[in-house]
Amino acid sequence: MSALGRRAFASLAIVIVVMAILLFTAAGTLHYWQGWLFLLVYFTASVVITLDLMRRDPALLERRMRGGPFAEKEPAQRLIMAFVSVGFIALVVVPGLDRRFALSHMPPAVVIAGNVLVLLGFAGVFLVFRESSFAAATIEVASDQRVVSSGPYALVRHPMYAAALVMLIGMPVALGSWWGLLLIVAILPLLIWRLLDEERLLEMNLPGYRAYQGRVRYRLVRWIW
């Protein structure tokens, strides 16, 4: 395995371990089948995407590993990503607390549906990575970047965000928490803020992007916005 692959899997292992610690500490128990199933789904999908990038597009994998608030160049994006990071942590902790205090109950079929949403979100991310090698974790324009208008980019201008939104909605459902769904109300404005700021940067720095906006009207959800 390459050095990049080792770093990628080490980072993934750290993320999964931290998520497990946050989730089961908040739940106060390891007897939380929804948590174990969600972690299995999340880990498996992450491994599949990482292996695909290692084989097909290591440059994109390298770009994806440079993420987080401190990797952003713009102050506004650093602030947005700081809030998004807190929101992601809350999406794990709040369902755990919900489990601890038995605040809500979801039938197993609904929990399974939540995991399906998480997988659909990952599938959307997979398609985006297959279509564009410029889907970095930070907002930037590479020197050789071009406008991608095929595949999922022919449907909405920001398919990565659309896929992420599906995944984020699925997470609290997969963890059996109705209360966790309320966090989406707080995270969605951050997602929109980041998306609009990214569009501003692309309009100014990526040749052909304005023409692409004219061809693909919808930003996030087709026929809505």
Rank of each mutant, 00 (worst) to 15 (best):
L165K: 00
M65I: 12
I139H: 00
V216K: 05
M106Q: 05
R99I: 07
L181R: 02
L39A: 08
G214I: 09
Q213I: 11
L37D: 01
L23E: 06
L202R: 06
S104N: 07
P95W: 04
A71N: 13
A113M: 11
A162L: 08
A10D: 10
A136G: 05
R146S: 06
D144S: 05
V110Y: 00
I112Y: 02
L168K: 00
L39T: 07
L196P: 03
Q34G: 14
R56M: 09
V47N: 04
F126L: 14
A102R: 14
A102K: 13
L60M: 12
P159F: 02
I184M: 09
R66D: 12
I187G: 11
W223N: 02
V86D: 03
I16T: 13
A113H: 02
S177I: 07
P75W: 06
Y218H: 09
S150C: 03
M65T: 11
S133E: 08
G214E: 07
L220P: 01
G87V: 12
L22W: 09
W179Q: 12
L79I: 15
W36I: 12
N115H: 05
F101P: 12
L120C: 11
S46E: 06
V18Y: 02
G68Q: 09
D57E: 10
R219S: 10
G124R: 07
G214Y: 00
T44R: 05
